[in-house]
């Protein structure tokens, strides 16, 4: 049984380049990143197929955030390269959207919700250009999509955690990108927002966008994502959720730390054997 499952995983087909889009949204080759001489990511090799919602899962300190930052060329890398849409990532940044962690900014900053979402348009504007009426229109639409339109003129410190996360999502939507990186968009949000975000992500995916989401909650990861990337300094597994989400690979990813998660893992294990999968 075990060996069979492993072989299934091993035989996960490398995603074929789609005929229509004809371009791979993200290709990471042999990426190694180190902080203070200690490697944080090691030999990452990933080819991401288009139109997928992908969860990046792994224990704390596994380098999840580092991976997406390095993939966008925001960190110095020790080796390897990253291509997005067939070009070096620095050249396709306008086609990449990003949702950083909510705690990474100062929410006392004197800007309104509208101002923040407008920042999503800045990447398209270029030097010295100011937002046009079209940009404003896009921003309002994006705010509407996350149901934050009534708050457009609010100062951002007067928002709840879930609302702040919606603003960040609206900003990413305003980027009108084809590839999205999201760093823990579900951290500290209410259940309603979480559901709304999932719907939004699925809609985006259905439009053919590729979305990589750093996520730390295993049970929900199984439900939310089409594909999972199990990460612990290196890629432990990358494939369809139903094939990758199994006891052995989770054990390999979380290592000794799986004791904390053993209940989850046991439940998964039991369900899987119960289903005869």
């Amino acid at each position: 049984m075990d060996s069979k499952r492993t072989s299934e995983v091993l035989s996960v087909p490398t995603p074929q380049p789609p005929e229509s889009a004809a371009e791979v949204p993200l290709e990471i080759h042999d990426l190694t990143v180190s902080y203070h001489k200690k490697p944080v990511l090691w030999g990452i090799d990933v080819v991401v197929p288009p139109g997928k919602l992908i969860g990046i899962v792994g224990p704390n300190g596994a380098g999840k955030s580092t991976l997406i930052k390095a993939a966008m060329g925001m960190l110095p890398v020790s080796s390897g390269w990253v291509k997005a849409f067939g070009k070096p990532v620095k050249e396709s940044l306008t086609r990449i959207g990003y949702v950083p962690q909510r705690e990474s900014v100062d929410w006392d900053f004197p800007v309104s919700v509208m101002d923040v979402v407008m920042m999503g348009r800045y990447g398209h504007l270029g030097l010295l250009r100011r937002p046009s009426r079209h940009d404003r229109q896009v921003v309002l639409e994006c705010l509407d999509k996350v149901k934050m339109l009534p708050y457009a003129n609010r100062q951002i410190s007067n928002l709840s955690g879930g609302q702040q996360q919606r603003v960040f999502l609206a900003r990413a939507l305003a980027q009108e990108s084809d590839l999205y990186f999201m760093d823990e968009p579900f951290a500290g949000v209410d259940a309603a927002t979480e559901a709304a975000i999932v719907t939004l992500l699925h809609n985006l995916r259905d439009k053919g966008k590729t979305i990589l989401v750093v996520h730390h909650d295993l049970p929900s990861a199984r439900q939310y994502f089409d594909m999972l990337l199990l990460l612990n300094m290196r890629v432990v597994a990358f494939g369809e959720t139903k094939t990758v989400f199994n006891y052995d690979l989770l054990q390999a990813t979380y290592g000794g730390r799986l004791t904390i998660l053993s209940e989850v893992a046991d439940a998964v294990h039991a369900r899987e054997s119960g289903n005869g999968r």
């Binding site: 995983v9 995603p15 890629v235 290592g255």
Partner: peptide, 23 residues
Amino acid sequence: IRSKPKLDEPPADLPAAEKSAVG
């Protein structure tokens, strides 16, 4: 003097994984 870390060998605490499982 010690600027470049030796990155030819993987670090010891790297979790085991089948390279071929990587997509």
